[in-house]
Simulated assay, not measured.
Amino acid sequence: MGQRIGALFAFAIVCISWDLILEYCIGATIIAIAWSGYLVSLVRSFGTTIPDQFARTPFAFDPGTAWRHTGAILPTIFHRPAHQILLVTGIRESARVNSIIAVVKALLPLAVGAAKAGNRVINLYKAMQVIHGRDR
């Protein structure tokens, strides 16, 4: 009985994982199409135009003719590497900041412990002077 439940659980995890991967791929495609539109409008603002067959989505749905091929998203080909460069740079910066924070978090308790130990030594020295009558 337990083996069946484990297999069912593993199957559910696999299904959910594939669902998340599919959702990510579709979301990334939709965002790439939208950002291509922004890039086309930016290029247009500088006075240059990208031909329409290179700036449209690759497929379009028309209820009368179903799916049809409309062209290629050429701007996506150009701005995709830029996004990857930004992503890699951001990951490196994040890792660097995370390393600095980890070092500070590791050294802070040591510094506090050292300060407390130093304070205890000073207090012990003062107490010894009081006990031996040399507190003046």
Rank of each mutant, 00 (worst) to 15 (best):
I30W: 00
R56K: 12
S41G: 04
V14E: 03
A72C: 03
R120D: 15
A106M: 12
R4D: 01
S99V: 07
F46R: 10
L42G: 13
Y125K: 02
R92Y: 10
A60H: 11
A127C: 09
I5C: 02
Q84G: 06
G37P: 00
L124E: 06
A106W: 12
H132R: 09
H69T: 08
T29A: 13
S36Q: 02
L124W: 07
T49E: 12
P63S: 07
A12C: 15
G6Y: 01
D19M: 14
H83S: 12
P51Q: 06
Y38P: 08
S94Q: 02
D19R: 11
F9V: 14
K116M: 14
G64V: 08
A111G: 00
G2P: 04
V112Y: 07
T49S: 13
W18P: 01
D135Q: 13
P75G: 08
G133F: 01
L20G: 05
V104C: 06
V121A: 07
I91E: 04
G2E: 08
A82M: 14
G90E: 03
T57Y: 03
V130M: 00
F78V: 15
Q53A: 10
M1V: 04
P75Q: 08
S36L: 07
A60S: 15
G133A: 00
F54K: 02
V97C: 00
T65L: 14
L110F: 10
S41T: 11
V103P: 08
T29K: 10
M128V: 01
A28L: 15
R136H: 07
R44T: 12
I50E: 02
H83M: 15
A34V: 11
C25G: 04
I73K: 06
G27T: 14
R68E: 14
D135R: 07
H69A: 09
G27K: 07
I31K: 10
R136I: 02
N119G: 12
N123K: 12
V112Q: 07
G47P: 00
H69Q: 09
G113W: 09
T49P: 03
T65Y: 11
F11V: 06
T29R: 12
T70P: 02
I100T: 11
V14G: 06
I5E: 01
I5Y: 03
I5V: 13
A102R: 15
V88Y: 14
M1D: 00
K116A: 13
S36F: 02
G47M: 02
L20H: 06
V130G: 05
F61M: 00
A55V: 08
I50G: 03
V97G: 02
L8A: 14
D19Y: 14
I73C: 11
D62I: 10
L22S: 02
S17L: 08
F11M: 11
I100C: 01
S36Y: 04
L110A: 09
H132D: 00
D52H: 03
E23R: 06
Y125E: 09
V103E: 12
I31M: 14
R56T: 09
I13G: 01
W67S: 04
V14W: 09
G2R: 06
L124H: 07
L108C: 06
F54I: 01
T70I: 11
S17D: 03
N119M: 11
I73V: 09
I101M: 10
L8W: 11
I26T: 15
A127D: 10
G113S: 12
T48N: 04
F9R: 13
F78P: 07
M128N: 01
V40H: 05
Q3Y: 04
I30E: 05
Q84W: 15
I33M: 01
Q3V: 08
